[in-house]
Design a protein around this nucleic acid. Sequence first.
DNA 1: ATGGTCGCGGTGCGA
Length: 267
Amino acid sequence: MGFRLATWNINSVRLRIGQVVRFLEEEAPDVLCLQETKCPPGQFPSAALHEAGYHHICDKGQSGYHGVAIISKIPFAQTSMRDFCDKQDARHVSVRLQGPDVTIHNFYVPAGGDEPDPQINEKFAHKLGFLEEMTSWFADKSAHEKGAGILVGDLNIAPLEHDVWSHRQLLKVVSHTPIEVERLLGVMAAGQWSDSMRKIIDPSEKLYTWWSYRGRDWEASNRGRRLDHIWARGGIENAVTAITVRKDCRGWERASDHVPVIADFNI
DNA sequence: ATGGTCGCGGTGCGA
């Protein structure tokens, strides 16, 4: 059967609930994973989503910062969330769907601040620590979490040369430094994850999901990065049939700085 | 040369 999943760093779900509903109407994914909902517990704009046909919502919010949610047409068999780095940040939720039997992990990895040195920048140290904890968790978890899995989210790292507008100019910029890329590849290896976006779109092609708010014309300068990811494992690595990056959403009125990414699976 | 712009919540912080 066809299964469609989308991921989007929405940068305030309450401010952009209209955009979320429009996206759901246009693309009709079975599941939408959001990051940076910035929405305190109990204030998630569920009613508009129910009206749009999405009756199952797993959200972990906090006031002002972070926040992740999974919005679904398909009921959940199980939901869970995990804290990382001994912080209460809302950076992970996970659901197992009732059918197809697939487990979905939705992550919002710390951005890491500006200075790519863990000795002087504790945000960067947090980012590296978060990735290390993901690695050890998936190294364990892959032993007992059986079956198909999908991991999505704003991972705040653009690992490949053509995931950024200039590999050379971004080598010392947080999101594209060698140490971050190495850690991200470590997470992938530990969980036996496969990069679904790059299975469809050749690594030689430039591919971005984020364009900064800073700077006068994001489209003309096109200095983007691929910070948002869709990974698969557990037998569905080769079931991806299409990837859609909705770049046009960056041009919407009062847009998020990230655009939605859609994956179609045949499972 | 070292900015620039967002969103939150009510000032500066995080991105």
